[in-house]
Design a protein around this nucleic acid. Sequence first.
DNA 1: CTTTAAGCGAGACGGTACGTCACGTCTTTGC
DNA 2: GCAAAGACGTGACGTACCGTCTCGCTTAAAG
Lengths: 202, 202, 202, 202
Amino acid sequence: MSAATAPGVPKRGRPRDERARTAILSAAASLLADRGYERVTVEGIAAVAGVGKQTIYRWWPSKAAVIGEAILEDFVVVPDLLLPRTLDVWDDLETWLRRGEDGFRGYSGDVIRVSAAVSSEDASMLARMTAKFAEPTRALLLARLREAVDAGQINDTIKLDTIVTLLQAVVSYASLSRANDNVVTDALTVIRSAAENHLRAG
Amino acid sequence: MSAATAPGVPKRGRPRDERARTAILSAAASLLADRGYERVTVEGIAAVAGVGKQTIYRWWPSKAAVIGEAILEDFVVVPDLLLPRTLDVWDDLETWLRRGEDGFRGYSGDVIRVSAAVSSEDASMLARMTAKFAEPTRALLLARLREAVDAGQINDTIKLDTIVTLLQAVVSYASLSRANDNVVTDALTVIRSAAENHLRAG
Amino acid sequence: MSAATAPGVPKRGRPRDERARTAILSAAASLLADRGYERVTVEGIAAVAGVGKQTIYRWWPSKAAVIGEAILEDFVVVPDLLLPRTLDVWDDLETWLRRGEDGFRGYSGDVIRVSAAVSSEDASMLARMTAKFAEPTRALLLARLREAVDAGQINDTIKLDTIVTLLQAVVSYASLSRANDNVVTDALTVIRSAAENHLRAG
Amino acid sequence: MSAATAPGVPKRGRPRDERARTAILSAAASLLADRGYERVTVEGIAAVAGVGKQTIYRWWPSKAAVIGEAILEDFVVVPDLLLPRTLDVWDDLETWLRRGEDGFRGYSGDVIRVSAAVSSEDASMLARMTAKFAEPTRALLLARLREAVDAGQINDTIKLDTIVTLLQAVVSYASLSRANDNVVTDALTVIRSAAENHLRAG
DNA sequence: CTTTAAGCGAGACGGTACGTCACGTCTTTGC
DNA sequence: GCAAAGACGTGACGTACCGTCTCGCTTAAAG
């Protein structure tokens, strides 16, 4: 009743059980991997986590939110899309694109669907998903491209941001459309051509 | 669907009521437009169509299948992505990309989600969706680009297929990511640069 | 039903809502009275009771079981077959038989159909129905007959059980067959004759 | 096409197919025996009979009517309740009662339920059922009792009709209630006592 | 050391929609 | 013009999850 001594909130009552929270997110992640988003049920998560259903709804407003958080907090294993660093930046990008295409095709259809489902109920989730996945990747690619500019492999007048966007568009489209395999190579040809055109033209 | 009526088979019994089929697909389409995929209900479709629920389940195995067919058979109004034809092919493409970005953002999130939902139950549906939407668009773009090549605006050594793929990737990505508005313009800059590089280089 | 709450068992989870149970059985009883067994619907019971359908299926395996329980737990108003007590036991019995004939014709066709329906799925229900309806009535009749024996109106060598059985057979048959009205009177004549024969013969 | 030559009704069109009618009633009877009334379906009857469902509904108004007719027309095998004829009428009656009790218990629960179900939709059916089953039996019993009167075994002042009614009541009640086995014997004792009372008293 | 305030597992609750079954009707082609 | 075939509108069935609401039980801070 009296003012809290702690700087933040007084915090009476039993504190949140961190083990329950972890168990819920793990269960959500593993069910997502096993069954796909639509077939995951809150009751299933509760059962696997050994938790009451209310403990889920106490902390998350909906199924989408739980699964979204499981993804955001790395309970879902996301293949690391590390960018190789050889001498040839175009080889590196092709390797990265191919890995991404496969990775997204396998598990990340679900991740993408989840972020769609989640975002339709909770606008902030899309931002968090973007911050988690898209932005680090952008930074990674941007750094590699900048090196290539420094090394004189790419003309410095081209907007690197734009190239990064195109690369992300390609990997996303290749995963979704399951089109024939040369999407990646072909796209890279165009991008490279543009980048070197500037180079030569400059 | 569309079981071919082999001329040899006598076909006994009451024939399928084409009015019911049409009413169902119309209802599905209109509910999809009104409420979005998740909120469409088979019972709702039946009620709007003035049809028994069983009549739906007699012909389609699931909600996804009905809605998928409604889309494939043009009951869902899809904004026509006509390609303008001015003198400048790059202007034309930018116009097309911007329209597509808006159009897909508006209604086609649903169409994409439907094809995802449907495809997870019925592998052939994805192919049909692709055949219906992606391929005609490809043909359209290809034709326009070919004209531009003939007009000497694009180098004839570049693979036009590749450019078309990139354009489709860009419009899809722009819709999904809701990124800032210059994605389209920037991407087009890169593509154009590549196309004209070949021109100049050749 | 009526799972005895063993004192040792902790009882976890939300307890069964007695108001829901009561509402369901009341609704079942009132619908049975209004519409007859065949026309009662589980969905109707749920709606009238203001209850989810699953709450019914959680506790009873079938429509027959719910309605059976409603009857057994006195939610269905059963006309009291009180036995009048005048000086003349035969007058009393005739009154009782006539009332029973009418009463059973009115509501108890349903009760009998329910017990048939229920018994074909749940053997114990028939026994419970019998215990509830037939046995108290037997006791009532037996007591009255015993008094008549004490009063010297019936020979004490006759088996009163047998007479009671015959009376029940007559009332059941009269209700079911809807035969002409003197069944009851005629039957009573025979029974009386037997009872007094013993009297006189003894 | 041309006018009928027969003296009765002209009868245009294809005449009713007697084989179909027979097949339907046989199928109904056999399904009734196999599955019990509730579990017989019109579609099942049609399938077993090799007949269109409409052919059933053309000639009968409901499931109950078809099955009722199957019973009435002896497609359902009803064990013959022949009355034995020894010197002792009471022995004969006891034998008859016991057979009836068993027979009704075995298959005739269904027949009784059918007649109830049928009668609730089609009042005339009850009369026909009665005419088919109850009346011949009445006649049979009556004849046997009359002989006993003639032979001086039963007093001629008792109303034989009444005794027959009682016997039928007993057999019906014994089958329905599945009571202990001496119902029949006990009841017979009373009836006999009454019959001989008259005899002696007279 | 007692009270008070949550959090917890369990599980019943009112709902919504599902996909199935059977009813009795309607509409074809074939005999 | 009846028969077989089989699609139709209707409506109840029993199941699966949703998100909410108690229970009795911890657990810890406040008094």
